[in-house]
Amino acid sequence: MTDSPDPLVADHIRRFLETGGQPRPGISDLLLTTRGRRSGRLRRTALAYVRDAEAYVLTASAAGADRHPAWYLNLLADPAVTLQVGTGTFAAVARVATPAEAERLWPRVVAAMPSYAAYREATERRIPLVLVTPAPLEPAGATASAG
């Protein structure tokens, strides 16, 4: 697994691991692992999230940059991801929020991380929201082929 090459994100990952998933008091953080769309390597980044029922809502803000973050492009290519929330890790599936979902969720995202409002103003691109839900469990024996 390769951690983000961004020194700030790499430090965030280190603090997440050292604190059992609580690097920033009052902010919900998780670790997202995607598969690199070109390299095929597992790539890990730290992100803030809000919950919406069983979904973890992630904001592909790239701090207001005019390009999408690499983790977002990776999960578009392969939506099978891994999340670490606190000390627990589980397989999950990611999808981009629909426009109606994003409109409903955006105020909650900004309430949790007010900097996202400034990021939205700083870029002309639409900042996507991503819904990540635990992967369905396969029944025992589901991988065995019949016949």
Results as ranks from 00 to 15, higher is better:
residue 129 L to F: 07
residue 88 G to L: 14
residue 46 A to L: 11
residue 130 V to L: 02
residue 30 L to E: 11
residue 54 E to T: 14
residue 4 S to A: 07
residue 135 A to Q: 07
residue 107 P to A: 10
residue 143 T to H: 15
residue 94 A to W: 04
residue 82 T to V: 10
residue 71 W to I: 04
residue 141 G to C: 01
residue 123 T to I: 06
residue 22 Q to I: 08
residue 15 R to K: 15
residue 42 L to R: 12
residue 38 R to F: 06
residue 97 A to I: 05
residue 53 A to Q: 08
residue 105 L to Y: 12
residue 32 L to T: 03
residue 44 R to P: 01
residue 78 D to Q: 09
residue 16 F to R: 14
residue 23 P to N: 12
residue 138 E to R: 14
residue 93 V to P: 00
residue 80 A to E: 00
residue 36 G to A: 11
residue 96 V to L: 10
residue 39 S to A: 05
residue 113 M to H: 10
residue 54 E to Q: 09
residue 26 G to M: 12
residue 111 A to I: 05
residue 22 Q to G: 12
residue 95 R to G: 03
residue 31 L to G: 01
residue 35 R to H: 15
residue 65 A to S: 12
residue 19 T to E: 03
residue 87 T to N: 07
residue 52 D to A: 09
residue 47 L to N: 01
residue 10 A to C: 03
residue 85 V to M: 04
residue 100 A to F: 07
residue 9 V to K: 10
residue 11 D to G: 06
residue 114 P to K: 04
residue 100 A to W: 08
residue 99 P to S: 00
residue 2 T to F: 15
residue 39 S to K: 09
residue 124 E to S: 07
residue 17 L to K: 14
residue 58 L to T: 03
residue 137 L to T: 08
residue 12 H to I: 14
residue 56 Y to Q: 07
residue 127 I to T: 02
residue 134 P to M: 06
residue 47 L to C: 03
residue 127 I to E: 01
residue 38 R to V: 12
residue 56 Y to K: 02
residue 49 Y to H: 09
residue 48 A to F: 10
residue 99 P to T: 01
residue 52 D to N: 07
residue 147 G to A: 05
residue 7 P to I: 15
residue 99 P to H: 02
residue 53 A to Y: 09
residue 118 A to D: 12
